[in-house]
Amino acid sequence: MDNRTRYLKLLDDYGITQAKSAELVAAVTGRPCAPRTVRSWVNDPEKPSSTPCPDWAINALEKAIDYMQRALARRAER
């Protein structure tokens, strides 16, 4: 599975919007990430505005999802 497909699957599986995923990636990496950047990653690869989705973006989104799940689990334990 390529990074574009993995990123789209994460968004779909966890109900995350492209804009929210940009915020999450920026929070984890400490680097700016705009919704437009995310759109270029998930855009049809044949389009000129498409950019390959980098490995670090996938890793950052997965890490952010893990953080959110842990926080929700701790909250549920209370």
Rank of each mutant, 00 (worst) to 15 (best):
A60V: 01
W56R: 10
Y7R: 02
A73F: 01
I58E: 04
E23F: 03
R74V: 07
S40F: 04
T17R: 06
Q69F: 02
L10I: 07
V28W: 00
L8S: 08
R75F: 04
A76L: 03
E23K: 01
D44K: 15
V38R: 00
R36T: 11
S21F: 01
Q69T: 05
R4K: 15
P48E: 15
G15S: 05
R39E: 09
Y14K: 00
D13P: 11
L8F: 00
R39N: 10
G15W: 04
K20F: 03
T51E: 14
I58S: 03
C33W: 07
I16L: 06
C53A: 02
T51I: 13
G30K: 09
A19C: 03
T37F: 03
A64H: 03
R4N: 02
R31T: 10
P48Y: 07
I58A: 02
P52W: 03
N59K: 11
K63N: 04
W41Q: 04
Y67N: 13
K47Q: 12
M1V: 12
D2A: 03
G30W: 08
D44T: 15
R70C: 03
Q18I: 04
T17C: 13
A22D: 13
L10Y: 09
T17N: 08
S40K: 03
D2E: 15
P52N: 05
D55V: 05
S40G: 12
L61E: 08
L24N: 07
L11T: 01
A57L: 09
S49M: 00
T51D: 08
